[in-house]
Design a protein around this nucleic acid. Structure first.
Length: 646
RNA sequence: GCCGAUGUAGCUCAGUUGGUCAGAGCAGCUGAUUUGUAAUCAGCAGGCCGUGGGUUCGACUCCCUCCAUCGGCUCCA
């Protein structure tokens, strides 16, 4: 007998060799029907794996992340089985579970192309196979057996994967006629998969390497219940409604023009007003934190970027130099603000007493992004960074870094971004050629970031190999409406640029020293930040930020004069107010302005005119009752102040 | 840049096997209505069917080029 400990601490005894599934059955049959995998001593395993020794276990349903992992992993195998049945000879790359579903990379051969039209057939085959309730059977194999199997099959992708595995750790899983190299775990049988949808087809380079063959990637998602698939599809529909590209057009915030050029956003009046307000907000925060604003030109001599190292790294993949007509000079559209700021630093001798110097600029930069990468406002070719560079002494580095974290967290709090993650990006020690700078400086910089993040108690993930080429960084990421992650704020330590520009200060010892630089942008770029803000709020911006705060709706044209009086009064109080004086019924005006997400609708007619009052309606909430004008002004200012009171 | 898809009026979309198929709703304009908390009614106007080629007696419809957009991949100072 063995002792099995459950998450609640209770212990039961079972025969050695019992499976997680049997344990579930011993509790209840209905539970057993929902169990898709089991964690044994912290390792996620098949629910059908025998347990031979005392263990702590946790039974996973689909609702658990571990359960989803197994469920979608098994679904990928089911799809592969369907693909093999429909397209004999297909070769398989990898087929992992992902955040929302799974994919499988396949090679169909030279002359076969998969398109969206093929998806229903594959889905039908998968459903057919799922109904057979075939068990997922695990088999441990030797490396040689594994190699033999896939060389017989002629699948060079699997052979490549097997060659990187160690003998004795290799397992196959089989369901129906399909066998795959896989570590597991898997669900008990295909019958668990009750609802499925293949979502898209894409190209994906084998092993993520653009120099290798491009495989066909098929994405899908599955559920143990039909209703869950419906809910998921419904959620996707709702997410589409929040898409910043759609809302940007509907709320007239920004546009693109092919004549102007792809990836070059154009800010419309309302969008520009919103952005300006965000910039002023940050300016004011930065002023309080000892930053000074500077302004630098949009182009700079090529030599500037040769000095900074950016030209060597990005020159040939960037917008090409602008040539002068006569002297043969070359200028680059600025892709970065930092070289300009270094020149400002260098414009006069600096003392250790002057440091830190914090130089801020809303600097517009231009980068040649690959055409396939452009995406709404989040990935563009011309954008404005809320950039700043902090030049400080090495002994000030960690403090300054922490102060920047404080600013970013403050901004996130004011704007109600609570669901962010922080990522520390370090260099890949196995690939040092990708980076510039000395080992010693890298080590110092990475240590400073890790310590600062720890000191602020940030929950961070560490990504090796994700650093910028000149230094490590701390990035703040948030998710958009459909769960895609975007990097917003960033803080980067840089020892290299001060070297390259030979930045110096005179220390208390009367000797020359090299300052350290911090690059930082709390929003990242105004474009991306506004995009994420649009999706985060669904276009319902905070009152202090929104382009139009109030719209006055006269019941009929007879009350347009009174509406104008209300408008004048509010505009005098610095409340951004419009009138909807159209010859339409009040219901119509309410509907149209609700859809424009204007926070307050003021309905005025006979009664309001007589009492010098307004009937207040909050967007999305409905009628708030009647108030005197003065009262409404105070009511609004209370809401505006509350939002800035952090 | 690569793989796949898409591109018809300002927006959202119909357009059957190539042959009065250039349409609808919303938005816009004009008129009527003067309205009390999410769409008043009527009329009018609006499109070189993304671009450039080709096939055909005839192309929105078929083929190719290019451009742009969408979903991914790669990239992201």
């Amino acid at each position: 007998m063995i002792k099995i400990t459950f998450p609640d601490g209770s212990v039961r005894e079972y025969e050695a060799g019992i499976t997680g599934l049997d344990i579930a059955k011993s509790i209840s049959n209905s539970l057993a029907r929902d169990i898709v995998s089991v964690s044994v001593n912290g390792t996620n395993l098949d629910a059908t794996r025998p347990i031979h020794t005392d263990a702590t276990i946790k039974l996973h349903k689909f609702d658990d992340p571990e359960g989803k992992y197994a469920f979608w992993h098994s679904s990928a195998h089911l799809m592969a089985e369907a693909l093999e049945a429909l397209y004999p000879g297909v070769k398989f790359g990898i087929g992992p579970p992902i955040d929302n579903g799974f994919y499988y990379d396949v090679d169909l051969g030279e002359d076969r192309v998969l398109t969206d039209a093929d998806l229903p057939d594959i889905e039908a085959k998968m459903s057919e196979l799922a109904k057979q309730k075939n068990d997922y059977q695990r088999q441990e194999v030797s490396k040689q057996e594994a190699l033999d199997y896939f060389s017989d099959k002629g699948d060079e992708y699997k052979l490549e994967l097997i060659n990187e595995l160690e003998d004795g750790t290799i397992s196959f899983y089989q369901q129906g006629n399909f066998v795959d190299l896989c570590r597991g775990p898997h669900i008990p049988n295909t019958g668990f998969i009750k609802a499925l949808k293949l979502t898209s087809i894409a190209g994906a380079y084998w092993r993520g390497d653009e120099n290798r063959k491009q495989l066909t990637r098929v994405y899908g998602i599955t559920f143990p219940k039909k209703s869950m698939l419906d809910e998921y599809l419904e959620m996707l529909e709702q997410a589409k409604e929040r898409d910043h590209r759609k809302l940007g057009r509907e709320l007239e915030l920004f546009m693109f023009s092919n004549r102007v050029g792809q990836g070059l956003p154009i800010w419309l009046p309302k969008g520009a007003a919103l952005r300006e307000r965000l910039e002023n907000f940050l300016r004011s925060v930065q002023r309080k934190h000892g930053y000074q604003q500077v302004i630098t030109p949009h182009i700079g001599q090529k030599e500037l970027y040769v000095t900074s190292g950016h030209y060597a790294k990005y020159g040939k993949d960037s917008f090409q130099p602008i040539n002068t007509p006569a002297e043969g000079e070359e200028f680059l559209l600025k892709p970065m603000n930092c070289p300009h700021h270094c020149e400002i630093y260098n414009s006069k001798p600096r003392s250790y007493k002057d440091l830190p110097i914090r130089m801020a600029e809303f600097g517009t930069v231009y980068r040649y992004e690959q055409s396939g990468e452009l995406h709404g406002l989040t990935r563009v070719r011309g954008f404005t960074q809320d950039d700043a560079h902090i030049f400080c002494r090495p002994d000030q580095l960690k403090d300054e870094f922490i102060k920047v974290i404080d600013i970013i967290l403050y901004i996130f709090k004011v704007l109600d971004f609570n669901d962010y993650t922080a990522q520390i990006s370090l260099r890949d020690p196995g690939n040092k050629d990708k980076y510039i700078g000395t080992d010693e400086n890298w080590e110092k910089a990475e240590a400073a970031i890790i310590e600062a993040a720890e000191e602020k108690g940030l929950h961070t993930t560490v990504e090796t190999g994700e650093a910028a080429f000149y230094g490590p960084k701390l990035d703040f990421m948030v998710k958009d409406a459909i769960g895609r992650k975007w990097q917003l704020g960033t803080i980067q330590v840089d020892y290299n640029l001060p070297d390259r520009f030979e930045l110096e200060y005179i220390g208390s010892d009367d000797h020359r020293h090299r300052p350290v630089m911090i690059h930082r942008a709390p929003f990242g770029s105004m474009e991306r930040f506004v995009a994420v803000l649009i999706e985060h709020t669904g276009g319902k911006f905070p009152l202090w930020l929104t382009p139009d705060q109030v719209v006055v709706l006269p019941i009929s044209e007879k009350y347009n004069d009174y509406a104008q009086k209300v408008l004048n009064y509010l505009n005098n109080c610095d409340i951004r107010t419009l009138i909807d004086g159209r010859n339409e019924k009040i219901g119509r005006k309410i509907r149209d302005n609700e859809l424009l997400r204007i926070p307050y609708l003021l309905i005025v007619g006979e009664n309001e005119q007589n009492e010098e009052s307004v009937s207040v309606r909050r967007q999305g909430e409905g009628d708030k009752g009647t108030m005197k004008l003065k009262e409404f002004e105070q009511y609004l200012n209370k809401e505006i102040d509350k939002l800035l009171l952090y």
